[in-house]
Amino acid sequence: MGLNEVLIEAKALTKKFDDFVAVDQIDFKVYKGECVGFLGPNGAGKTTTVKMMYCFLPPTSGELKIKGFSVLTSSREVKAIVGVAPQEDNLDPDFSVIQNLTVHARYFDIPKAEAKKRADEQLKFFQLEEKACSPVTGLSTGMKRRLIFARALINKPLILLLDEPTTGLDPQARHLVWDEVRYLKKQQVTIILTTHYMDEAQILCDRILIIDKGKIIEEGTPTELIKKHIGREVLELDYDEKLVPQLKETFSGSRIEKLGDRLQIFTDKPHGVFDSFLAEYKPQNVSIRNANLEDVFLKLTGRGLREI
């Protein structure tokens, strides 16, 4: 299986647009068969990094190698083994659903009969068989995303780049995409996924890179990151000024934050501590939940948060 084979390696990778540094000296490695999530706020540099991986944007400096091939000097070799599902809809409206796959296959020099076979397989896999001969302009958003996904697989890529694959999808369509990602992981396809949805990253990714302002600010498995930055559980309740001193006392050593008109307490303390606090002070709209990646993300990227 070659589990430790490095498929993607970035060293001091940098991309500048005029004076704006979109990606700033980042280093990372992706191993064969991994699903790695690139998380970050809008404009953090996720898509720019992905675009450099499929040789669309040339790096300004540093190094980026895909299976040992430099994106600068061996772009053909790189693009032959990479499948790309971009963020925006760039399906070809001049063609039907199945032609979008067969025409795309032709760019990879896949013979006609083989292209037809693969296209049929993909349409079946993505539940688009009935739409095979329909124009793409009439497809729903979810179907378009699935067709983009199917198109990215037409060259049987070693590495699949999914740039926000579920943005704008309804829950059914999201789950369908997730199932497909899980299936591909079983097939040992290496996957790079960018997303704003933390639940998605937590469910699908083996490893997370959190990017902000062009830099990788944290890296690890979802569980590691949650444990390291947040703790086990989060107690949420309506903000009440009077409760703050008691909270600080009861949960000493835990982080307490105000998010909008809610308070969040990130803690490893046993449940008994919660219960006695709740029984004594009866705060409003209480919920206790497991700490998740979103907590990590908001803590690290700091948007809209104010510590008290």
Binding site: Y54, F56, R76, K79, D89, D92, H104, Y107, F108
Partner: peptide
């Protein structure tokens, strides 16, 4: 409008 060039540029075609 169609971003067709972008789509083709993800393949070995430059």
């Amino acid at each position: 409008f169609q971003k067709t060039f972008d789509a083709i540029a993800t393949t070995p075609v430059s």
